[in-house]
């Protein structure tokens, strides 16, 4: 398909054991409560995880409308998976794994149709409202350059870096979510940061 993406592990989440005590994760406990019939637990999970999920997906697919549709799909899948859910990983790892797979599939479809995802002016405030006008302009330029450079990264590198830097996942959790090894995550993040630095130097950071 021309982009050299390894599709292994992209189709389904690996339920493997990687977390010492996943039930210590309060979100995993909520999911278990939901499995037992507590719908309010699902609502709490939805409220808590919607913002990071939409943020991650919007930066993956570069279109907030699509990101929201995909985020809804993620929660529908979580909802439908309740009866077979087992707390073998942190809930957020599982959720981002589903999101990542959906994002890759979406980008794949767009690429096949040669649809270039459009940025829809998602509500990103590129400047601190408390800063002076010049600082605001500088901050906005920096953010825009960074967003542009980020969009230019290969998808797996972008996903790994975003999950690490913006969502705070550990390398083991990223490995689980992306369906790759820890060594691959280390390499993906290393190359992502190098690539980003290179792109920023090119546009005069």
């Amino acid at each position: 398909m021309g982009r050299g993406r390894n599709r292994l592990g992209a189709g389904r989440f690996d339920w493997g054991e990687r977390v010492a005590d996943p039930e210590a994760d309060p979100d995993a406990r909520l999911m278990l409560a939901f499995r037992a019939g507590d719908r309010a637990a699902f609502e709490t999970l939805f409220q808590r995880h919607t913002p990071p999920l939409v943020n991650f997906l919007a930066r993956m697919v570069r279109d907030r409308g699509r990101a929201e549709e995909l985020a809804q799909e993620v929660f529908i899948r979580i909802y439908n998976a309740r009866e077979r859910y087992e707390a073998k990983a942190r809930f957020s790892t599982w959720m981002f794994g589903i999101a990542h797979n959906l994002a890759l599939n979406d980008l794949d479809r767009a690429w096949r149709k040669r649809e270039r995802p459009m940025d829809d002016g998602a509500e990103t405030r590129h400047a601190d409202p408390g800063a002076g006008p010049e600082e605001q302009v500088d901050a906005r330029r920096t953010s825009e350059r960074l967003e542009t450079a980020l969009r230019g990264l290969p998808e797996r590198q972008r996903a790994a870096l975003l999950l690490r830097t913006n969502e705070g996942l550990g390398y083991d959790e990223i490995a689980e979510a992306l369906g790759v090894s820890m060594a691959s995550v280390k390499s993906l993040i290393h190359r992502a940061r190098e690539g980003l630095s290179q792109k920023l130097r090119e546009v005069g950071r």
Binding site: T50, V54, N55, Q72, T124
Partner: peptide, 21 residues
């Protein structure tokens, strides 16, 4: 670079997102 990445504005769900879901 990490500092800049972390300071990127969060992309928030639209107001109608929850009702749509």
């Amino acid at each position: 670079l990490d500092v800049d990445l972390r300071s990127l504005p969060r992309i928030e769900p639209s107001p109608q997102f929850e009702a749509q879901f």
